[in-house]
């Protein structure tokens, strides 16, 4: 680990002014950043500890929730309002990592976690994300955990967060503050596809700080599910995960949300499938057609082609189960 200075701040203004220093990085729970520093992938020279900021979950004026970026993952999943009104988010958070890590990790840090691609982690490998222009060893190597959607010849890494998949489905917004003022971005626009600049994970600009995540009021609490498929039954990153939410009007789909994890450089909101389903009857045939449409452009690599089939199956199965839920929970 490269030596660094450390400042714990209690005012956002202090954080933002320290955050403009060259080499500065904001530090949350450290569950990802400390690991990346130890691997010499991240080499900040100043850590600005923001765990004391934005630690509340508040009602939004429009009936949604504003979750402070400093709130611990466990605290979000335990919050009664989240559990009752946004169970999808609670489930997704609980699917991630281990209890110990969820107790440490903050919401802001979770959003900003970096890929778990083995070639990104190995400083002897070629990786455009770690070392722009050096090439991508993953595309011709081990890529079981890699992207089938939105990848580029430069990078096929996936975003490892479970929480963000639920946030994408729930139309969450990321509130950002920075040296040039505050702004909001839809979570689905916050993370980037790799294109030819995979070193840039998100739209966050230098010195900017995530202050909160805002959930709009509709939490799809009656019919929603987070299904994570992985290589062991717990404590593993997703091969494919599906956040699904449904509102039915009789037998028809009034509203549907679908987002996929483990398949792309960002949490993948399934806009194509959603559009295909809007207003349609809630039947397995339509679900299958929509899944097919969403995955039409999916491309497999050596080890991950199975994810295309798997993603389709889990989408269909999730929607079938949600539509069949007679007396859906809550």
């Amino acid at each position: 680990m490269t030596p660094f200075l450390y400042e714990k701040v209690s005012e956002r203004g202090d954080a933002l002014s320290l955050g403009t220093h060259p080499g500065a990085a904001y530090l949350g729970g450290g569950t990802n950043l400390v690991d990346l520093m130890r691997e010499a992938i991240a080499r900040p020279t100043l850590l600005v500890d923001v765990t004391g900021l934005s630690c509340k979950i508040e009602e939004d004026e429009k009936g949604g929730l504003r979750i402070g970026a400093g709130v611990k993952n466990t605290a979000v999943a335990t919050d009664r309002r989240v559990r009752a009104r946004f169970p999808l988010l609670a489930q997704a958070i609980l699917a991630g990592a281990s209890a110990q890590i969820r107790n440490m990790a903050t919401v802001g840090g979770n959003v900003l976690q970096r890929t778990r691609c083995a070639y990104f982690y190995d400083d002897e490998a070629h990786c455009n994300k770690r070392s722009p222009g050096s090439g991508c060893d993953a595309i011709g190597g081990f890529n079981r955990n890699h992207a089938i959607l939105g990848a580029s010849p430069a990078c096929a890494a996936t975003h490892p967060s479970d929480m963000c998949v639920a946030l994408a489905a729930l139309d969450a917004t990321v509130s950002i503050d920075g040296p040039r003022g505050s702004r909001d971005l839809p979570l689905t626009d916050f993370h980037r596809l790799p294109g030819d600049a995979p070193e840039i994970d998100t739209e966050l600009r230098s010195g900017e700080l995530i202050t909160s995540i805002v959930l709009p009021s509709n939490g799809f609490s009656k019919r929603s599910s987070y299904r994570k498929v992985r290589d062991r039954s717990s404590y593993a990153f997703a091969l494919v995960s599906v956040a699904a939410a449904l509102e039915l009007d009789g037998g028809r789909i009034k509203n549907v949300r679908l987002a996929l994890g483990g398949v792309a450089h960002k949490p993948w909101r399934a806009h194509v499938a959603e559009a295909a389903l809007a207003g349609r009857p809630a039947t397995e045939a339509f679900f299958a057609e929509a899944a097919e449409a969403e995955l039409r452009d999916a491309k497999g690599l050596r080890d991950n082609t199975f994810k295309i089939k798997l993603a389709k199956r889990v989408i269909v199965d999730s929607l079938v189960k949600l539509s069949n839920a007679k007396d859906a929970p809550r």
Binding site: T78, Q91, L94, A99, N103, K228, P329
Partner: peptide
């Protein structure tokens, strides 16, 4: 970890296998 888990159960922290997180 088990002691921490007991604490979490006492304070109502759900898990991924909790049938109804609410």
């Amino acid at each position: 970890s088990a002691i921490g888990m007991a604490n979490e159960l006492r304070t109502g922290v759900p898990s991924y296998v909790t049938a109804d997180v609410a």
